[in-house]
Design a binder for these strands. Structure first.
Lengths: 219, 219
DNA sequence: TACGTATAATTTGTATACAATATATCGGAG
DNA sequence: CTCCGATATATTGTATACAAATTATACGTA
């Protein structure tokens, strides 16, 4: 959902605020998959009534971040090994498509943005700042999505990233993992910047395969 | 959103009922893009209060079927020529991905299902039953999505189909258009059934290009 | 003790109320 | 006659209330 522009001075409704807060907590892995979302508890926590909480939860369900389980209530989506394989495959395919498109449509601006995003990743990795790296890594991939010039494709890719967030977050255990991930980006970038569709496709394929393997190990 | 199983004897909430009714009316082109969704009007029409209507509308927004316009209120999404190009490109890429995956994973069951779906299309086309053909065509594509064996990819594809529904619906003007579309399916099927990824990719590419051209003409 | 049943406590879905805000209508000044 | 501003109207977002349905608890019986 093509989120709202500039955060500054935009009057934001309680339901949006809660939605964003929850997406943040969930994708970062702070709230664990399987956890039940308690309407009343959330309402109290955010100092509002159930109504805006329900709106927020509804939107998260539509995004696949929450699901209705066996019991009553909404739960943070959790996936069996097989489902995890499927959802990563889907993300994989979208990412590859993005990489191919970007490699065909590079501009000075998009090249710069991608390099800038990568610089932030590298710095966070070298500083050993795990939390910062997680954010920078997400931003890096989002930059690639945007560089397709197609907001609809970018949105799909972002949604998959949000849904798989909690499972990917677990994989960065030590500082070497961060460095290794950032180095991977370098290869990916050079494949995309080659403006060769096949190279870009394979570059992203490798990057995602790597990423998936580590996620599988960690789950 | 992986809709609820068997329609029979499933107790369905008012908000779901309204959501489904609206999705139906919108994707079939019955309600035109740009139309404003009036909460109060809908509440009266369906004999409920604003609350369930709002829930339904919220979900449609999350699916990109409704958008917030300049003025107050929610509107059926309408797209500029450029946006239409982008959204069709996105759908195009997903469909191609589906076709490739299906061609690599055909089973006796999925082959049969695809052929059965096509038979329904052909019959509707020959009968000149436009409304029936529209439904059969959607079902045909959905069958292909499901044949990927990956519900997450299938869901994405279905969502794009719903979003572009109103624009594709316009293109079938006379009976020849129906026949022509159904014949196109035959080629697509033989490309997919060849179990050759490249053939399947190109087959779907051609099919979608054709479809997009006609949609552009009609919009 | 284990099971089934009645009762209590939660929880969901919907209705209604209301304040805040955006849009429309109207009237007057230039 | 056109533009501006004040007032009226409509609409959104949120709060609260409540019935229906689900889940948990307690109790009695075999």
């Amino acid at each position: 959902m093509i989120t709202d522009n500039n955060s500054s001075e935009t009057k934001i409704s309680a339901s949006r605020r809660i939605e964003h807060a929850l997406v943040d907590s969930i994708t970062s892995g702070e709230l664990e998959p399987g956890l039940r979302m308690d309407e009343i508890g959330l309402a109290e926590k955010y100092g509002v009534s159930r109504t805006p909480v329900r709106e927020a939860l509804n939107r998260l369900v539509a995004q696949g971040i929450l699901v209705t389980g066996e019991k009553r209530g909404l739960f943070i989506a959790e996936y069996s090994r097989e489902e995890l394989g499927q959802i990563f495959e889907a993300m994989h395919e979208i990412e590859i498509t993005c990489a191919r498109i970007v490699s065909q449509r590079l501009t000075l601006l998009t090249r710069s943005e991608i390099e800038a995003a990568q610089a932030v990743c590298m710095k966070a990795a070298k500083d050993g700042d795990r939390k910062k790296y997680l954010r920078a890594n997400e931003a890096f991939h989002e930059t690639i999505y945007r560089a397709t010039g197609n907001p609809y494709i970018a949105e799909i890719a972002n949604r998959f990233r949000r849904r798989t967030g909690p499972f990917r977050a677990r994989r960065f255990l030590n500082n070497d993992d961060l460095i290794s991930s950032a180095k991977n980006h370098e290869n990916l970038i050079s494949d995309i910047f080659s403006e060769n569709s096949n190279k870009a496709t394979n570059g992203m394929r490798n990057h995602m395969t790597e990423s998936f393997l580590q996620a599988l190990k960690a789950n």
